[in-house]
Structures are given as structure tokens and as C-alpha cells.
Design a protein around this nucleic acid. Structure first.
Lengths: 403, 403
DNA sequence: TTGTAGGCGTTATCAC
DNA sequence: GTGATAACGCCTACAA
């Protein structure tokens, strides 16, 4: 008479034969301490979480039915469902994820992969926002978020983990770069990348990005609308999509706006010819270009190079805010003012943009939204829906005092 | 003769009887599409990850042995281990986490819990660093990091998840507050909190924090060493441990330093009497106190109130950097200079501190290290080790131009 | 040291 | 609709 309410309700009394899989409970797992008494133990045996079977017993139905109710199957008589729900509530039952995964071959887990190099960069706000967005979007779903830092020691570890069927899909954030070394994964697992892949080879997976080109063009138009005529830009590395796109967009915006609009500032420099760092200006009205590596120091250096060219400059667009900050410093060091002599527009709208002095006009990236969108897309992908290969999110020019 | 290399090597030919658990493969899971041919299918059946059994077959040993090797059991003959490793490598075997958890009753997963309110605050750099630290510390271990955002809609969800045995332990980060609403969890799961609990009730769990008191005292001593004699402070909310501790520490530091050192700036105001926002200074040499809520705006407002008191002030310590920024603004608005007229020292060393103008002298918190330490402590807790209830990490005063 | 076998908690396939 | 029951892939006491 021990074990009240354990066997399935109306279960046929004896089903032994061969396997005899009835509850037999092994459980003397926590080995150690011989002898019967027990002053030695430490943990008070957390009264083991109730299982689906316990719920079934209490509700007077079979495990199968409980499972159906838990998974929202439509084919369950209301009365039964009712009883099951009651039992679940009474017992505080919560399904065991491991068992569920094992049986269903789906983990309900999504991995967020980030290269260690990015993780080390102290608190990259852009990355933090992405994580936030992903987490927030996943919160209301049944998916769980597993953060994976790709170790540099053992690069294969992450790959193995992902390929090992431990998650249903993955989101890969490679800083602002086009590092899609995980592209291969795409064959064994749904993967969504943050940022446009550098090699636009069609089948390189799914990605979410902002419209860098359009945004940079907006920046150019804004400067021109503000009366600036001598545009310059501090571009990012040309082996990263954002670096390439923002430069191209800025040039396009400068060309189009000036053409359709006022007078000066003609078309952009020839793109091909200026693909190296030291590119000299070709015509007076061209957009002057220098390159940086997204760091404040590189921004300052690039600005100094621009000023040394001796050509007139009354506005500079930088590929990110950090370089804009450096540029501002260089401008002031040269005895000029922002935005009096030179207007400055950055990109990212990171934390320092608003509090910089002067507060920076910049292109705001919806980073949280990007994370959320990546999550949504991945979920749809996992559930077999059709989704676009590339999703572009809109940016917004935030006008502050620097322009 | 089909199925080469599937049955265990020297396995007794026929073990059927009763259960007959030999590989029978169910697997016609992906229902649908009748008919034999197949132009309808989409996914190419990812060639299912190899199982432990496959490894066993290839290595010519039993599953048990493979398991032992995988789990690093010492009792395995080198030769066997060798064979197993080779097989693992050849097959690219990676253990199935779900199955492992189910069988071993350990998930090898750690949850990082963060209240939605914190997650919404846009990219809190402090929080981001914590996550980073946790992730980096966990990377080399076999633990997986599961990010849990506590939904405000359904607060029970997270709790249920945690109590449901889906993780081996949890790390709770409640911003800088003393919100330990998860304290109860402590009974069913190892939990480590970030930040000192407000109620110092002994048994409230494990936590990692910085020495706010000592750090604030350092700040006071620094100011005094710099020749400042009229100290003021903008404290944080007194219902948050950091708010309380930084105020107490600053007072202590000011008192001790001035006592042992030079002349002016006597002991601190009476702590009890000044626990409300408008606390008026009591004696000329006391530390002037105003309160803010950690936002820049509140810092500016508090600074204005301090200035309006009409008492001499040549230095102000704020409970965080954001308020320091606000204070600087207020100081300049009053026609005074930083640090010329008033030196300013913040707390946190957040991203904006270094780039502020003037760059802010502030107390650096090892936030990444805090995250890492929390992770390490939790792992030790999970593995049954003895660990201190409270771990205090050292801070460091970063002297920049504002003081 | 190694193999055997039963069970971990769910899901899913079939009959009823 | 509902209930048996065989996996899911791995771990581990126990036997050898």
C-alpha cells in the first residue's frame, strides 16, 4: 500500500512480461556514505519534480493524454483536459526539457554565437543590444536562448556543439564584420546572421542587416541640406560590409543630392581608384575619403590626414561614432570648431553619441530590433516557414548638435 | 549481412527475450507524402548525428566503455580509450545533451536571469559586461549558458523553468539593486546573486559584489589628498545597497582621512538624520549630501540643490557616473568649472566616463570579472564545494581630469 | 577493466 | 478520444 497514487489510474493490474517496464525506481544514485543512518548528507533531496506520470495518475488518465494536453493537442475531451490541468496545477508540474527533447528530437533551444574577440571587446553596446533584442523576442516563445562564445583555443568546440544537434537553430553575430565562417553550418542547421555577408554569393544563408547604403546616403543629403558643400568621409575597413556600404552610400547620397539639389559638391570620387587608404582627392568637388578601423584613434588620425590635404572641408561623415569622436578631437586640436567649421555625422548612435560634446548627429541603428528580428526569423525558419534571405531594417538619422 | 559494424563487437549473438531491445528504429517520424518517389521533400535528412552506439561499434567496445571514455573515467584501458577516441574523431561524434541530462539528472546548464526591466534599459553596459564575464568564464567548462529574461507578464514562467530542473544552477543579476526576489529559489537550486542583498539576513544565499564602502572611502581620501576640503556627495537611492554603501563609505573615508590627515572637513553628518532627500547640512565641516536616482538628470538636479545651499563646495562624489555627468553640466551651468572650482568623482567607470569632458575620475568596477566570478562560484557550488557566502571584488580608482 | 541491462521522462505510433 | 508501449541516446549499478 505504499506509493499511493502512483500507478496509472485504470491501468490493467499486471502487465509484466519480458521487459516489465513498470515503475521500479532505481534511484540510489547519490552514492557514497555507507551505513544506513544519515547525518552525513547535505542536500535535503529537493523532493524531485513531479513527472508527467504523476500528473496522469492524479488526473486519472494515461500519460499519453497528459502529454496531449500539455502540447495542446485538439483531440482531447474537455473534461479530461480539465482534470489534467488541475492536476498540473496541484502538483506544480513542469515538463522535463531533456526528456522532451530526447523524445521529440527538437531542443527548443536557440544558440546565440559570438566570437570571443567580440566578447572581449569591452562591453560593446551594439552587441549588448543585439543580445537584448534576441532575448526579448524569445522570451514569450518556448525557445530558450543559449549563449555560445566561440573559443579561440578550440574553435571546433562551438561548431561541434551546434552540429551535435543540441540546438534547433543559431544566430551568429560577428560584430560588424562579414565574417561568415559559420556559413557551412547552414547545411545542417537553420542559421541567421547579423550583418550582410561580404561575399554576396546568393546561397550564403539568411541575414538581418540595416540599410547601410541608404543610411549613409541620408547622412550625405542631410549635410547638403544644411548647406555643407565640401564633404569628406572617414570610411571603415573595406573588407567589412559596413565599411564598404557606408562609403558607397555616402558617395551616392552626395552625388544625387548635389546633382538634384544645389550647386557644388559634384559626384563622388571614382570608387575603384580610391579603394586604398591613402587615396588622394581627384577633383575639387569630390568627396574626400580617408580610412579608419572604427577606433577613436584611427578616426582622429584620418581626420588629421584629411585636414592636411589642404582642401576645403566643411563636413565629415564617419563610418561609426567612435571614429567621429576621434575626428572631433582632431578638429578641435587643429583650432577648428564643430559644427562651426566642420559638421560631423557619425553612425551607430552608440551610448557615447548623445553625451559627447557636442552631442553627435548620427545614424541610429535599431540594434535591439535587429536582435529581435533575427530571433523571429530564425524561429520561422525552424518552423519551416518561407522567409526572405536578407532582411533590411530601417535606420534613422538623429540630428544633434554636431551638424 | 546488412548493417555492417552495428552490433556491439563481441556481443552474444542473440539476446532477444522479452524486451528485445535491439535496434529496431522507429523513425518514420516525418509523416506526410505518401508514394515512394520523392521530389516533394525539402530538407535532405541531415544524416543524423552519430550516436554513442555507433562509436562503440566502430571502436569494437560496448556502449558503456564509450560512455566511460567520454566522461573521462579513469578505469579504462588505454588501448580501449585510444580506439574510442579514434572512432569518435572519425565519426565526428558529439554526445547528445538531452539524453545525457535525462540519464544523469544533470543538465550542465546554467541560467543567467535578468529582470525584463533591466533588459529594456537600453544596453546597460554594466549588465553587458556581467554577461560577458559569465560567458567567458563558462566557455572553457562544459556548462552551457541559458539566458532567461524574466517576463513581467508571466513572472512565474522563469521561476517555474528554474524550479523545473532545467538547469543546474542560476545567476541572478538585478541591476545594481538589492532585488532578491529569487531568494526562495535558493532552496531548490544553487543560486548566485550579483550585488549585495539589501537584507543582510545571513542565509540569503550567495553573492558577488564590489566593496562599495571601501571604494567610496578611497574616493574621499583621493579628494582630500588632492587638497579638497569641502566635500559633498550625490548619493543613490537609499533602498539600494550600492546607494547606501557608497554614501556610508564616502562619509567614512572623509572622516577618517581628514581626522588623520590635514585640517578641515570633519566627520560626516549623522547618518540616521540624513536619510531623507532634503537633508540639510548640520555642521560646516560635514559632508554635504543630496540624493539622486542614478540618472544624469537627477545628478544635475542634486548638484543644483547642493550649490543652492550656499555652503562652500570644492569636490563632489557621485554614486555613479551618469549622475556625475549631470553634475558636471549643472556645475558649468552655474558658471563654475570642473575641476577648477569643483572636482568630480564618479562611480562605475562606464563607457561614457573616459570620453566625457573632462574625462571623469571614477571608481572602476571590475564588471567582467564580477560576471566571471559569479560563474566560477556557481560552478563550485553545483559541484558541491564550500564557498563563501559573499565575495567582494576590489575596485580601482581611475584618476582622470575631473579631479 | 568491461559488458549487460534497466531506466531517465516524453513523445509518438498504433490499436481500441 | 484514449491508452498501451516502443523508442529517444545515454548513464550506471551490478555482474563478470
Amino acid at each position: 500500500m505504499l506509493r499511493a497514487a502512483v500507478p496509472g489510474a485504470g491501468a490493467p493490474a499486471d502487465r509484466r512480461r519480458g521487459c516489465e517496464r513498470g515503475r521500479k525506481r532505481r534511484r540510489p544514485r547519490s552514492g557514497g556514505s555507507a551505513g544506513g543512518g544519515g547525518a552525513a548528507a547535505s542536500a535535503p533531496e529537493p523532493s524531485a519534480a513531479p513527472t508527467l506520470e504523476a500528473v496522469a495518475a492524479l488526473a486519472g488518465v494515461s500519460r499519453a493524454t497528459v502529454s496531449r494536453v500539455v502540447n495542446g493537442s485538439p483531440k482531447v475531451k474537455p473534461a479530461a483536459a480539465e482534470a489534467v490541468h488541475a492536476a498540473i496545477a496541484e502538483l506544480g508540474y513542469v515538463p522535463n526539457r531533456a526528456a522532451r527533447s530526447l523524445a521529440s528530437r527538437r531542443t527548443q533551444a536557440i544558440a546565440l554565437v559570438v566570437p570571443e574577440s567580440v566578447a572581449r571587446v569591452f562591453a560593446d553596446p551594439f552587441f549588448a543590444s543585439i543580445v537584448q533584442g534576441v532575448a526579448l523576442a524569445l522570451a514569450p516563445t518556448d525557445y530558450t536562448l543559449t549563449m555560445l562564445i566561440e573559443s579561440e583555443q578550440d574553435p571546433g568546440k562551438t561548431r561541434r556543439y551546434l552540429a551535435g544537434g543540441n540546438v534547433d537553430g543559431a544566430i551568429v553575430v560577428s560584430h560588424h564584420t562579414g565574417d561568415h565562417s559559420f556559413a557551412e553550418l547552414n547545411r545542417s542547421l537553420p542559421v541567421v546572421f547579423g550583418g550582410r555577408p561580404l561575399d554576396a554569393s546568393a546561397e550564403s544563408g539568411y541575414s538581418v542587416d540595416v540599410d547601410n547604403v541608404g543610411a549613409a546616403a541620408d547622412a550625405a543629403r542631410h549635410l547638403i541640406a544644411r548647406g555643407r558643400r565640401h564633404l569628406a568621409t572617414i570610411a571603415g575597413p573595406q573588407d567589412m560590409p559596413p565599411g564598404v556600404d557606408r562609403l558607397a552610400g555616402f558617395r551616392a547620397g552626395a552625388g544625387a543630392a548635389s546633382g538634384a539639389g544645389a550647386s557644388a559638391a559634384a559626384g563622388a570620387e571614382d570608387a575603384g581608384a580610391s579603394a586604398s587608404a591613402g587615396a588622394a582627392g581627384m577633383s575639387g568637388a569630390a568627396v574626400l575619403v580617408e580610412y579608419g578601423d572604427f577606433s577613436p584613434a584611427s578616426g582622429a588620425a584620418a581626420m588629421r590626414r584629411l585636414l592636411e590635404r589642404g582642401e576645403p572641408i566643411d563636413a565629415v561623415f564617419t563610418a561609426n561614432d567612435q571614429m567621429a569622436l576621434g575626428a572631433c578631437t582632431a578638429i578641435r586640436d587643429a583650432g577648428l570648431t564643430v559644427p562651426g567649421d566642420i559638421a560631423v555625422v557619425g553612425f551607430d548612435d552608440d551610448l557615447s553619441a548623445a553625451t559627447a560634446s557636442p552631442p553627435l548627429t548620427t545614424v541610429h541603428q535599431p540594434s535591439v530590433e535587429m536582435g529581435a528580428e533575427m530571433a523571429r526569423i530564425l524561429v520561422r525558419l525552424i518552423e519551416g516557414e518561407e522567409v526572405p534571405r536578407l532582411t533590411l531594417l530601417p535606420t534613422r538619422l538623429v540630428v544633434r548638435a554636431s551638424s
